[in-house]
Design a binder for these strands. Sequence first.
DNA 1: GCCAACGTTGGC
DNA 2: GCCAACGTTGGC
Length: 137
Amino acid sequence: MMKSRHWLVKQEPDSYSWDDFVRDGGTSWDGVRNYQARNNLRAMQAGDPVLFYASGEGREVVGIAEVEKGAYPDPTADDPAWVSVRLKPVRKLARAVTLAEIRAQPALARMPLIRHTRLSVMPITASEFKAVVKRGG
DNA sequence: GCCAACGTTGGC
DNA sequence: GCCAACGTTGGC
């Protein structure tokens, strides 16, 4: 049985917002320089569902994305060990799901988003993914 | 603006 | 190899 993987990526809307992402029709998720995040990028496969979270101003999950292309060397890095993936937008949530809301839900509060606040690329479970999408409409 | 968490760097 | 100093991220 194939296990589907679900992910959450964080981005400061000041540097790259959901609207930028939609306007571009997808983007290369590069510039990640954290080992744990890199390992997560490496595990991403085309078709994996991804939640798009806006940190800083907002602090909320704003939309659903999908892995378009799995890990390849990050063109912005000197060292080819750093990787990036290509993500494309699927749809915006009807209503953004806030960090406070996620924290208040025992079923969601276990996500690394809450427990490892500085991690920018993280795996989440299928049920966490579903629960957030359900709340987002 | 402040502060906590935590990864990285550099002296020893 | 240890650990203090420092820088960055990100919540509040």
